[in-house]
Every structure is written in structure tokens, then in C-alpha cells.
Design a protein around this nucleic acid. Sequence first.
DNA 1: TAATTAATTCTACATTTGTAGAATGTACTA
DNA 2: TAGTACATTCTACAAATGTAGAATTAATTA
Lengths: 107, 107
Amino acid sequence: MQLTKTEEQLMQYLWEKEKAFMKDLIEAYPEPRPAATTIATLLKRMADKKFIGYKLYGNSREYHPLVKKSDYFSKHMSGLIKTFFNDSATQFASFFTKESDMSEAEL
Amino acid sequence: MQLTKTEEQLMQYLWEKEKAFMKDLIEAYPEPRPAATTIATLLKRMADKKFIGYKLYGNSREYHPLVKKSDYFSKHMSGLIKTFFNDSATQFASFFTKESDMSEAEL
DNA sequence: TAATTAATTCTACATTTGTAGAATGTACTA
DNA sequence: TAGTACATTCTACAAATGTAGAATTAATTA
């Protein structure tokens, strides 16, 4: 199962904070903030998908990531490379150095 | 508007072929192939999203991409870098060389 | 020309995603 | 302790996505 774009956004905030209560995550959003129940739904779905976990404190939860940002990113990258470069890192690298703003020197 | 995963898959086949009739695209799929109407729906949606165009030949259409694979890929990459590295190519590069299978030498 | 092949359009429907109101419960605070 | 702040669960619903049957049409072929 994959995170959707909206869920990914929320995940970003959680990665930044490392752990957080719902309130903190809501505050991370720029105005106009989504409704609290919207976030609650997202958190629930993300927990179902096993991307986040939580510790109970009274009736509320302190959420934390279950996947590392780097792992998540890597998975995306390899997916992208697989899809677009037939899984050839070399093909990717040559495209990358040609097309990107980065020069080989920078790398 | 974005392509969905399924649409992207179909787009891959079209990029490979450069232009194709529906039949050719269906044949590109491994068994079990999706129903022809499924492909037809996808092609229609992709045309609506302006990712593909077509030339009429009798009652049928020869489809072709309207966006280059490299452009599409680049957009994805920058999106990914923006999301995960706060738009810093340098941060990305350092992560990349550290985490990937590719060495700097390879690049 | 009758049968076959390919494509298109229309319609349909289950699932997933984005968003949030209402009701309810707990915990801190004046 | 009564009010306020925060969280949770339940329910709901529109839009997007994945998938495809039925009907119709055009082109090809036996």
C-alpha cells in the first residue's frame, strides 16, 4: 500500500517533528488549515497502512513514523528509475547528468 | 492534472512505440490483458488530460504522446526533490551518493 | 454479402481519496 | 466544578480511479 499525496504531505510534517500529537501536526499546516477531523482521518488511514504508529497518552496519541524518510524516498526513486529507465541505473545517470541542473562536478 | 499509475503504464507503451493504435497498445500488455474498453477509457481520460493526441484513420485513431518522456520524468524528479529535500539539489545529491547503489565514480 | 475484427461511446459500479460535520470523551484551567 | 481545548470515532459524501459490459459502427476478409 502506498501513501497518497495528501498523506505524504502529512508524513513530511511528522518526519520533521519525529513525533507529534495531532494538534502539532495541524499547526504545521499553513492557513487555511484543514479540519481536525480531516487530519484525524488521514492519521487513521496512515496507521492502517502501517506508515505511522503511536503511543497512548491518556486519550490521545503521540504519533511517530514507522518508515524512515530515506527509505521511503529510496523506494520512490527506484520505482521511478525502474519505470522510466528500465531499471538501468546507468541509463538513468546519463539522463540525469544531461538533463538536470546539477553538473557532474556538483555531484 | 497528473497521470495515475495505470495511465502511466499505458503511457510507457505509447512512448516505446511512439505511435500506435489501440490494438497495438493492448497487445503490449502481458497476459491477462485488460478489457479493450478499459484501455479505451484510459486513452480517453489521457486525451482529456492532454497527455496524448491522435490522428484519425477511418473510424479509428492512431495515438501519440503529447509530452516527452524526459519532460515527464524531469517533472517527477523535481517534484520528488522538492518534496523530500526541500528543493535543495545539493542535499539530494549527497543523499543520493550515500544511499544509492551508484558510486560517484559511476556517475 | 455475411462474418469477423477493431474501435468507440455510453453506461455502470466498486474502491479509493479528500474533506468534514456531529457526537462523545478526557483533561486541563479559571 | 464548570468551561474550554483537544482528540477520537462514526458517518457521509463528492470526486477520482480501475475496470468492464452492451450497443453501435466501420473496415476487412472469406
